[in-house]
Simulated assay, not measured.
Amino acid sequence: MQNFFGPVLIVIVAILFFGTIFGICYLYFTSRTRERLALVERGLDPNFFRPRRTALKYGMVIFSVVLGMTLGDLIPFRYPVGVPLGVMLGGLSLIVYYFIIDKRLDKRDEA
């Protein structure tokens, strides 16, 4: 009997796993469609929530993480500090990105 429950349990877990992923994706896309339809009905742009200037953000984060990991490997220290330094510099780059975008949006609003 034990040999029978192993494959059945694997199939049940797989069905639940992929069903959960499908359910989350379905809810995400249907709610997004409803939001966009509501924006169109009100006469607004449906791409209102689309993020802008994401290439700058991703470039800054990737560069900062790689720089931090490289510097962490070069620093002679008792413990490995590459990954924590990379994560810290990645977070710092997101903060800097926020201030850059905030300043650009302020200039655009003034003009």
Rank of each mutant, 00 (worst) to 15 (best):
K107P: 00
M69Y: 09
I10G: 10
R42F: 04
P51K: 09
G86A: 04
V65A: 06
R50C: 08
R53M: 15
P51W: 04
P76N: 06
R50H: 13
E41P: 05
R52F: 05
L56R: 09
F99G: 00
V81H: 05
P84Y: 05
L94Y: 08
V13L: 12
G90Q: 02
C25Q: 13
F49M: 13
L56Q: 09
R34H: 05
I62S: 14
I21C: 06
T30Q: 14
G23N: 08
I95D: 02
V66K: 04
R78P: 04
R50S: 14
T54G: 09
E41F: 06
Q2W: 14
K57N: 15
Y58I: 12
I75H: 06
L85H: 02
Y26I: 03
I24T: 12
S64M: 10
V66W: 05
L56N: 06
R108I: 14
T70G: 08
D106Q: 13
I101P: 03
L89I: 05
R52P: 00
T54C: 06
G59E: 02
P84K: 06
Y79H: 13
T70V: 15
V66G: 01
R36L: 07
Y28N: 11
I21V: 15
F17I: 08
F29K: 06
G72K: 00
E35Y: 09
R52Q: 11
Y97P: 07
V87Y: 06
K107H: 08
V65K: 00
I62E: 06
T20I: 06
R52W: 02
F49D: 14
G82M: 01
L9W: 05
E41I: 04
F48N: 07
L71M: 04
T70K: 09
E41C: 08
Y58R: 11
M69I: 14
Y79S: 12
E110I: 13
I15S: 11
L39M: 09
P84W: 05
N47H: 10
P51R: 11
F5P: 00
T33Q: 15
R53C: 11
M1H: 13
L92K: 01
F4K: 12
F99R: 07
V11Q: 13
R42I: 01
V8K: 10
R78E: 10
R36C: 01
Q2A: 12
P51T: 06
I62W: 10
I101F: 03
F18H: 05
V40C: 08
